[in-house]
């Protein structure tokens, strides 16, 4: 069972209050992107064994979207952060570096 702290309302919400929103920080290709790049944007997703960044929505609570960083193996939660950003906050990345030396996720290390 996952428990994520919603940054909008501060509630430690259990998984049944949340709705998953898939991979975080997916940037739309285009408007003049190649078909290959647009296909990647639509269909290619990370499937890491370890650190992962995801979007979640506090559906049965305040209704807000937010981001979460967690480990797919141990379900450890490294932190949650607000939805309106294109990259994880540096403090969170620092925390993950300390907990998982040598990790990488897309361009983040």
């Amino acid at each position: 069972m996952l428990i994520l702290t919603c940054p909008a309302c501060g509630i430690a919400a259990d998984e049944t209050e949340l709705h998953p929103g898939g991979e975080a920080h997916v940037a739309r290709a285009g408007p003049h992107a190649s078909e290959e790049a647009f296909s990647d944007y639509l269909f290619s997703r990370e499937n890491p064994r370890g650190v992962h960044f995801e979007r979640w929505r506090h559906a049965m609570g305040c209704g807000k979207w937010f981001h979460a960083a967690r480990c797919t193996v141990t379900l450890e939660i490294f932190g949650t952060y607000r939805a309106d950003c294109t990259a994880p906050p540096e403090a969170l990345l620092e925390r993950i570096r300390a907990a998982r030396p040598g990790w990488s996720w897309r361009d983040f290390k």
């Binding site: 309302c9 049944t16 559906a59 049965m60 609570g61 305040c62």
Partner: peptide
């Protein structure tokens, strides 16, 4: 005020 889930409803 705590918005949550009771049974199957918000």
């Amino acid at each position: 005020v705590r918005r949550t889930r009771l049974g199957q409803i918000p």
